[in-house]
Design a protein around this nucleic acid. Structure first.
Lengths: 214, 214
DNA sequence: ACCTGAACACCGTTCAAGT
DNA sequence: ACCTGAACACCGTTCAAGT
């Protein structure tokens, strides 16, 4: 009896899990291709489940996004960890920021979620956003210590800049060169003024690039 | 008889104009304050007109936005014209870009419209966007001629960067300092490498900041 | 001419009813 | 437990009917 009930329960659970996977597969494909503004009802329809089923698995669009992004976010943070051991701290930071843009732009709507998620503790994406923030912060601080990256920029500013460029990429996904050019401008804006210049003798002339406001 | 018909017609027209103004006033207030995502039906309701009336006056959200922005856009372009006569070409450009951000962020949804409007010839905002593009281009080229601004950046890249920062401002309107910091990074990224430095003797050491891809 | 408001196909979300 | 799908209040948009 108990066995039967358990196996039935397990059956139900696997059925539920299959539904969950089907929803995720449909959402993944839709958000990755053209129709990023697909409605949740449409996702349910394509996945062959009732609307209620979708909303119990994923009570909001953010929850669905979080499920889609979870593994990739973890990989991105692991990559940051790895890059903390790289020889050139500035290059490590900039490479990771480029990765982050690709990561964010993979599904439509992520740039806004990333920008809002850190501040909104109620968001299902809050935990992931904080992890990304932390990774960015570690890489930034390390690059700032080598004095290759300006000292007056804060982690949340870097995140905002990356979100902003990801938003542009999201708006015009067919313009990779364009976004790359924007990233170049942004990265150069983050650099300390004189180029690394192995001589290291002109660093005294580095002007303050803006008034610190703290 | 003819007089009567004419006066009645005129009466109708003035009534129509009054409706138009009321719609614009409601939309202006809504988009400028919190609820930037107000529905057009709700605008009609608040303005006390039928939904059909609103859609005949403004057949799309972009059309409504264009009506709201028209005068401000003209003023912005006039300001650009004026700044073309300013002493410092780079400062003129950067000041105008800051103005542009404020301009774009005044109503919600404009940053996306600005980014898309230039490329979408069918958009009601196309003409305005092109005018802004042109203004930016003039200021940029002039600043590049003085070699204070990097030569490898294109007008549409500057517009994208400004749109992106405006988008951030739109997402978090209560963080003026934050957006200002992003603008600083962007502007410094646009500068030619060595600071103006009145001595002008170290300019030979300016490294190329990125491989030109054209 | 200009306006109205019901109507349409949709959206996100809920929930009683089923298994 | 889990799922279904009708139902709700909304959205942008259209259009027959009124003045």
């Amino acid at each position: 009896m108990v066995d039967q009930a358990e196996s039935q329960e397990r059956g139900m659970r696997s059925h539920a899990r299959r539904n969950r996977e089907r929803i995720l597969a449909v959402a993944r494909e839709a958000l990755a291709s053209r129709d990023g503004d697909i409605s949740l009802n449409e996702v349910a329809r394509r996945a062959g489940v009732g609307t209620g089923t979708l909303f119990r698995h994923f009570p909001s669009r953010d929850a669905l996004l979080e499920a889609l992004l979870h593994d990739r976010t973890a990989a991105l943070c692991a990559e940051a960890e790895r890059l903390l051991g790289a020889a050139d701290a500035a290059t490590a930071l900039f490479d990771w920021l480029a990765d982050l843009i690709s990561h964010v732009a993979i599904y439509q709507g992520v740039s806004a979620a990333l920008l809002a998620g850190s501040r909104d503790e109620g968001s299902e994406l809050h935990r992931s956003c904080r992890a990304v923030d932390l990774a960015a912060e570690s890489l930034l601080i390390r690059a700032q210590r080598t004095e290759q990256v300006r000292a007056d920029v804060r982690p949340d500013e870097v995140i905002s800049l990356v979100s902003a460029l990801s938003w542009v990429k999201e708006q015009s996904p067919d313009r990779d060169d364009h976004v790359r050019a924007l990233l170049t401008v942004m990265v150069d804006g983050l650099r300390t003024f004189p180029s690394p210049g192995e001589q290291g003798e002109q660093q005294g002339t580095t002007p303050p690039r803006r008034a610190t406001d703290s």
